[in-house]
Design a protein around this nucleic acid. Structure first.
Lengths: 128, 128
DNA sequence: CTGTATCCTCTCGGATACTG
DNA sequence: CAGTATCCGAGAGGATACAG
């Protein structure tokens, strides 16, 4: 569950509701294709904007900046600007970002382990 | 990485590319808010359509059916129709679905553990 | 190189109504 | 109850141009 109700805690209903909607908001932020792919792409490395863009097949300039801001705002990636010319901006995962990455890794593993099963499930479904 | 290139395997480039795009396709299917919330909601239970709808706060009739079909097509949920009147349709997670649920659980845990950190990261970001 | 802004298209997604 | 179809508005997301 995204929103687990903790009975008997010291918090009142208003607090629980607030935490709930916050959790949902965060979940919506990160449970999206591009955000997760970015997290995977960065990994434990330090990458520049253009490197990231090359790394993530099919992402547009706009989506990359947009999602990087989102991740930065939520404290998942750290953005360091080197005041040189031309500018050099580097992105890294923060500690929370790394923790999340572990779970995303698990999702990717799952995907690869079930490629075959999913493909045949699709065929079965599509011929009906 | 979603698409890890396995060097030295018996597969040729065409196969690798195909598996890659398939992986990306699957990833896009499941890395979306509603799909993940549905997986979480079903859990290890057996739920009817209307029960699911009540369970998942804010999901519309349309999004629920749409995403259920998607999950069914990929073999993550099983749909059993009881030919009664009124009809009774039940949804369960398949074995692959359960495996994926474990990783989604981890993501939810992560969200709850970092609620505070994220909230303050946001405040820092927003006042700049 | 990195980032912002604009325009424009297309899909997402809600509301509603209608079938078995 | 469960599902499909339609309409329609809001937002996602690409392409392009421009600034620092």
């Amino acid at each position: 569950m995204v929103s687990k109700q903790v009975k008997g805690s010291g918090k009142d209903d208003a607090d629980v509701t607030r935490a709930d909607s916050l959790a949902r908001e965060i979940f919506s932020d990160i449970a999206n294709k591009w955000a997760l792919l970015i997290i995977e792409a960065v990994g434990d490395r330090t990458l520049r904007f253009t490197e990231l863009r090359r790394e993530i097949e099919g992402i547009s300039h706009k989506m990359l900046t947009q999602n990087l801001r989102l991740l930065e705002r939520n404290g998942l990636v750290e953005r360091t600007v080197h005041p040189t010319v031309p500018p050099r901006v580097e992105y890294t995962l923060t500690e929370p970002g790394q923790a999340l990455r572990a779970t995303v890794d698990a999702m990717c593993d799952w995907t690869h382990r079930h490629l075959g099963a999913i493909e045949s499930a699709r065929h079965r479904f599509d011929s009906a």
